[in-house]
Amino acid sequence: MMAPALLVLLMNNYLPMIGSLIAFKQIEYTSTSFIRSFLESKWVGWENFNYLFSTTDAWTITRNTLAYNAVFIVLNLVIGVTLALLFNAMRNRRLAKLHQTAMFLPYFLSMVVISYLVYAFLNPDIGIFNKIVLPALGIEPIDWYTESKWWPFILPIINTWKGIGYYAVIFLAAIIGIDNEYYEAATIDGASRWRQIFSITLPLIRPVIIILTFLQIGRIFYSDFGLFFQVTRNSGILYDTTLVIDTYVYQGFIVSGDIGMSSAAGLYQAVVGFVLVLLSNLVIRRISRDDALF
């Protein structure tokens, strides 16, 4: 019974890993067949990886990628759990479902669409903020796409708004699955609502929290390309705070067309993510062995 699933896993997840070898080769299109070109291309060792670390932008893109993703993980965890608790506390279930649906909707929107929504707010000339909000507060208009200091706050807000519905629904499903007898016993013992949250709800949904956190840590060296490229409109003046590994590699690939360099960046991101998951799991095992994934 496991054979079909294992076959799909092998073909979909493991065979493509052979493409990681591209990171160690200089692809030269010697024929119309990519496979033949791949086999005939020469090995260059670690030369493709030097591209990521030999420029002055290496520190900037690494710092931005890690810092933004760390903030995203914290916000998704804290706000996601908070919203799930609030949804679970709503007495009117129909109204709760309406709120959940409304919050989940942005998750399905393309970043292209979201970039235009953001531009409608931040347009220097006709944007809602510069035309309505800031004048009402007595603040001078801001040229959002030329001042990089605002984007470390703007990007986390947009990312959280788009994806928080997904995390809230998962946490809510975990909360709903908790046996109601725990809460009844706690109520009889005189436990307050806050006490029930910290002593029953959060400990029982801890495995779900850990799994979702692990999944995000595994991609901490990746970034949402649409968020950092489309939403910022690829404004060069913002690169100090918006340039991440994915957009940097994309721009390098567009300029040089070097598929080996792009593959090296992808392999680097995957290996670092895998190592971080292993280290995170090791820490969890030291704290609570039962909550570790392996």
Results as ranks from 00 to 15, higher is better:
I210A: 09
E47Q: 15
R286F: 07
F294C: 08
F221C: 03
W151V: 02
D291T: 11
N76G: 11
V112L: 12
S192D: 12
A186R: 02
I164S: 01
P124V: 12
K25E: 07
G236I: 04
A264T: 09
A67C: 05
L7V: 15
I284Y: 05
T82M: 15
L109P: 12
N281Q: 06
T160A: 08
E40Y: 14
K131S: 14
S263W: 03
Y250D: 13
T82P: 12
V8I: 15
A174G: 08
G80F: 00
S37W: 09
Y51E: 13
N69T: 04
S33A: 08
S199G: 09
G163M: 09
S54D: 14
N130A: 08
A67W: 03
R36L: 15
L10N: 14
Y107L: 07
M103C: 10
L105Y: 15
V231K: 00
N50S: 13
D291H: 10
A3H: 15
A23P: 02
E40I: 11
K131T: 15
G190K: 03
D189F: 06
G177V: 06
F121R: 01
L15T: 07
V133D: 07
N92C: 03
I154T: 12
S263E: 05
I205V: 12
N50F: 08
N159H: 03
L276D: 10
K162M: 09
S20L: 14
I176H: 10
E47L: 15
K131N: 11
L15P: 08
Y239K: 03
V277N: 08
V255W: 04
W194R: 05
A84Y: 04
A264G: 08
D291M: 13
F221D: 00
E140I: 09
I197N: 00
I114K: 00
F34I: 13
L117F: 05
L52P: 01
D189W: 04
